[in-house]
Design a protein around this nucleic acid. Structure first.
Ligand SMILES: [Mn+2]
Ligand SMILES: [Mn+2]
Ligand SMILES: [Mn+2]
Ligand SMILES: [Mn+2]
Lengths: 222, 222
DNA sequence: AATTATTTTTAGATAAACCTAAATTAAGGC
DNA sequence: GCCTTAATTTAGGTTTATCTAAAAATAATT
C-alpha cells in the first residue's frame, strides 16, 4: 500500500468524484464535478488527466470518469478524516450542526495517520458523524447507510431520522426551526398530490414539508 | 482590523521572520530565513517583496527585513494557533513531546477564529505549550518568558526547567533519556573549563551535558 | 584601498491549479 | 439521419511558489 501523497486540490477532486459516484458504481461527468467544486469544466479536465495518470480514476475521453479501486480507498480515508473532525468540532468544541462542514473541509487535508488514529480513539471510535453519515474505519470499511427518505414513506408509516443529505445553510436553518435532528421520530400524516408535499408529525406537531426537503432527510423505517 | 488572508507560504514566512526577530526587535537577514525554511535565498527575496507590499514587514534592499507592528500581530496569531494545537495533541491525543511540532505546523494554517477560540476554551486557556513556550492570547498578548539557560547558572545554583528552545529530534531524544521535562529541577555541580560542559544534578543523578545543550534549556532560577 | 568572499537580488524557467475562448464530440429533437 | 444544442476537451494565458544561474551590492581580508 504505497502511501500516495496528494495535494489539497487532488484530495478535494477525488472526494467529490467518490461522492458523485454512488460508492464507486456510477460514472461521473465532468460537468457534475465542475458544479460541485465551483471550478470550470476545462480545469476539471486537467485534473482528471492528473488523477488518471495516478490510477485513482479511469477516464475515457468524452465518456466520463470512474473511480478506481484504489481511488475509492484513498477517497474513503479523506472522508474518514473529514467526518472524524466533524465529530470533534460538534462534540468537543461545541460547534453547531451547520458550522462544522466548512472547517472540516480544511482539517481533512492534514494528513498524519497518527493524528487521525489518535483522534478516532479519543472520540471513542464514532460510527457516524453529526449529519448521520457513516465514518469509514482505518481499513476503509463503511457501515450500511439508510437510503430511504421521508418522501418514500407511505401514509401512517413511521421512521427515525438517521441522516441529513443536503449540507447547505438554508437547509440546516430549516431543520433547526423544525427541531429535526438525528433520532427524531417522524410519522406521515398525509401526502399532498398537488406538489408532493408531505404532512408530517414531528415532535407531536403536524408540519408541511416540501418533497425536496423530504428527499434530503433519510430515515430508518420503524 | 482588516482581516488579511494569507497563504500557507506567507504564513510560514511571516512566522519565521517573527521567530528570527527576537520579538520584533532584530533585523532579519534573507539568508537566515532561507536556512530556517529550507528555501533558496532567491525565493525568499520574492516573498519578502510580497510581504512588504502587504505592509507586514519593512525591507531595505541588501540591508535586511524588519517585521512591522501589524506583522507582529499576525505572526502572533499564527503562533497562537500552533501552540494551542500542540497542547491539544500532547494532552488530548497523547502525542509525545517530539511528535507534536510537525503536525501543528500544518494545523496552524486552518484559519477559523471560531475554531481557535473554542479550542482555547476547551483546553482551558493554557498559558504555555508543551515545550514551555507562551501562548499568545486572542489580543496577541504574551507572557514574559525565561531567557536564562542552564549554562548561565553558576556552580551550586538551582533552577526549574521552564522552556525547551531547540525542536529537533535528536535533542528531544536526549531530553527523554535524561528525563528532563518542563518542571524538572537542576543544580549545577561543576563547570568544566575545557569545553564549557556542565556537571548537573538532575533527578538526583549527576550528568554531564554539553554547553550547547545547556544553552537550549531555559530555566527559572530558584 | 584593493581584492576576494559572501550575501542578496535579478533574470529567466518550471510546475500546479486555475481561467477564457475556441474546437471537437456526443446527444437529443424532429 | 441531419441539425442544433449541450458537454467536453484543447489551446493558450495567469498567478503563486518555487528553482538555477548570473549580476550587483556589501562585508571581510590582506
Ligand atoms: Mn477539503
Ligand atoms: Mn458530515
Ligand atoms: Mn506551518
Ligand atoms: Mn512548541
Amino acid at each position: 500500500m504505497t502511501n500516495i501523497i496528494l495535494s489539497k486540490s487532488e484530495e478535494n477532486y477525488l472526494k467529490s468524484i467518490y461522492n458523485l459516484s454512488d460508492s464507486g458504481n456510477k460514472i461521473v461527468t465532468t460537468n457534475s464535478i465542475s458544479k460541485i467544486l465551483n471550478i470550470e469544466p476545462a480545469s476539471v479536465t486537467d485534473m482528471i488527466k492528473k488523477l488518471s495518470k495516478k490510477k485513482l480514476i479511469y477516464h475515457e475521453k468524452y465518456k466520463g470518469t470512474k473511480i478506481s479501486k484504489n481511488g475509492i480507498i484513498v477517497a474513503l480515508q479523506i472522508i474518514r478524516r473529514h467526518r472524524l473532525w466533524e465529530v470533534f468540532l460538534y462534540e468537543k468544541l461545541n460547534f453547531n450542526w451547520d458550522e462544522i462542514h466548512e472547517v472540516a473541509e480544511e482539517l481533512e487535508h492534514v494528513s498524519s495517520d497518527q493524528l487521525i488514529d489518535n483522534l478516532d480513539k479519543y472520540l471513542k471510535y464514532p460510527k457516524i458523524d453529526p449529519h448521520g453519515d457513516p465514518i469509514p474505519n482505518k481499513l476503509g470499511e463503511v457501515d450500511f447507510v439508510d437510503k430511504i427518505s421521508i418522501s418514500d414513506l407511505k401514509i401512517k408509516e413511521k421512521g427515525i431520522v438517521s441522516r441529513i443529505v443536503n449540507e447547505d445553510e438554508g437547509f440546516f436553518n430549516l431543520l433547526n426551526k423544525l427541531k429535526i435532528e438525528i433520532g427524531t421520530e417522524v410519522t406521515i400524516l398525509d401526502k399532498i398530490d398537488y406538489d408532493g408535499s408531505l404532512d408530517v408529525l414531528i415532535n407531536n406537531k403536524s408540519v408541511i414539508i416540501s418533497k425536496e426537503i423530504a428527499e434530503n432527510i433519510k430515515i430508518t423505517k420503524i
